[in-house]
Design a protein around this nucleic acid. Structure first.
Length: 104
DNA sequence: GGAGTGACACGGA
DNA sequence: GTCCGTGCCACTC
């Protein structure tokens, strides 16, 4: 099969439940490239024109909204997350452990 | 094919 | 908690 790494990432992206977040590292590991978290950001960047993917639910391992500058508005990511019940303080998810989602 | 580029992660100081 | 160096690998010239 010719599934690229990117396809796996996209598939997993769509599974992130509303009101939850996950990290670049978790996605990478689940897609079989444990230490290639950097690629996730690269892939998400290529989706910036496609809002059908919940890119806003991906944060770094500290819960920081490291990708917020890549959205249409500076507050887009934060607004989306807060809209789903996640509290953001200083560009960081409050109580990350409570909101993190880990694939099966 | 070689070098540069990341929306990262980890360990050590 | 911070700052810094290193590993990482798909992708693009």
């Amino acid at each position: 099969l010719n599934n690229s790494f990117k396809d796996n990432v996209l598939e997993l992206l769509l599974k992130i439940p509303e009101g939850k977040v996950t990290t670049y590292g978790i996605i990478a590991e689940k897609c079989g490239l444990k230490s290639s978290a950097r690629q996730i950001g690269y892939i998400l960047n290529s989706l910036k024109n496609d809002m059908s993917y919940p890119c806003h639910r991906v944060v770094n391992r500290l819960g920081i909204l490291s990708g917020k500058s890549h959205f249409p508005d500076a507050d887009y990511m934060q607004n989306m997350l807060e809209n789903e019940g996640i509290k953001i303080e200083d560009d960081k998810v409050v109580n990350l452990k409570q909101h993190i989602w880990i694939p099966d």
